[in-house]
């Protein structure tokens, strides 16, 4: 029983990381129809930022990683992805090319072997079965969700973003600069991936292919949660994180992914568009 209880913080913290990653994906996917395979490399960029700044201090690393990954995302959107709207499958392959380049760049800059980031002293230790580092990751994700919620619902740029997501043409005719909104969405989404990267340094080593481990699961969160849905992303991330860690606990690591996959396919039989659906009259 104690073993099963131990899985709870592990599952929830994995879910929290997935959530941070999936938030960016769900909004870029929902708003622009872009499948960004390079998103995983923004996680890696965030993690390496934390590695470089580990002597400066962990609290500095979080905003720095947000900025680094965010700017990379903004650059990618402005330079390349902007020309591909309406061709989601092409963006998928384009961004995969970008992700290959970024991985090799990381290998050349930091070396192929994994590096370890020393977590700050105040994150070692635990309350009961709950280690501080995993608790911190959950708090970080919770904070990000609140911030995103406030941004979407209580700020002018957030309202513009929702408008573009619901109806791009109508938003444009009311005077919203949709290109600007797209850039901003990409910046924030990629920045969150950077924050997720910092969180990952607390629970494991950092390597050039760090992002690829999480990107597939993060996409499943988007599929299960529904496109551009904050609530959906939160629930799906928590569900997938828990399912992953308990499936690993009760069977073994190699079967867990298969179980998760079958569960997602089964889930899509009931809710083909995910938990929550943006209602529209358009033919999907």
């Amino acid at each position: 029983m104690g073993g099963a209880l131990n899985q709870l913080p592990i599952g929830l913290s994995i879910g929290a990381v997935l959530l941070l990653i999936a938030l960016g994906l769900t909004f870029t996917f929902g708003q622009m129809g872009v499948i960004n395979m390079a998103h995983g490399e923004f996680i890696m960029a965030g993690a390496y930022t934390a590695y470089l700044l580990q002597d400066v201090g962990f609290p500095i690393a979080l905003p720095a990683a947000f900025l680094v990954a965010g700017l990379m995302g903004l650059a990618l959107e402005r330079v390349a992805i902007r020309h591909f709207y309406g061709r989601p499958l092409d963006t998928l392959l384009l961004t995969w090319g970008v992700s290959l380049v970024l991985q090799q760049a990381a290998r050349d800059l930091f070396g192929a072997p994994n590096v370890q980031v020393v977590s700050p002293g105040w994150l070692r230790g635990s309350v009961g079965v709950l280690p501080y580092n995993r608790l911190f990751i959950m708090l970080l994700a919770a904070l990000s969700v609140v911030a995103i919620w406030a941004y979407l619902n209580r700020s002018a740029p957030g309202r513009r973003m929702r408008a573009v997501m619901q109806n791009r043409g109508l938003a444009a005719t009311t005077g919203i600069d949709t290109g600007r909104v797209d850039g901003l969405t990409f910046f924030i989404g990629s920045g969150l991936a950077g924050v997720a990267g910092v969180a990952l340094t607390l629970i494991g080593p950092v390597g050039p292919t760090l992002g690829t481990y999480y990107i597939v699961d993060a996409f499943l969160v988007v599929v299960a949660g529904g496109l551009g849905q904050l609530k959906g992303a939160v629930l799906a991330a928590a569900g997938l994180g828990l399912l992953n860690s308990y499936a690993e606990f009760w069977t073994n690591a190699s079967l867990a992914k298969v179980i998760v996959f079958v569960a997602i396919i089964g889930f899509l039989q009931f809710r083909p568009q995910g938990l929550f659906v943006l209602r529209s009259r358009a033919l999907t």
Binding site: P88, L92, V216, L220, V223, K257, V258, L268
Partner: peptide, 26 residues
Amino acid sequence: QRVRGAYFAILTQALAAALVILLVGQ
């Protein structure tokens, strides 16, 4: 269920990832 386009791409990719882990584990 009319799951298609990018969703289908993501699902097939997840299947590939799952099979690799399964093969390595057994």
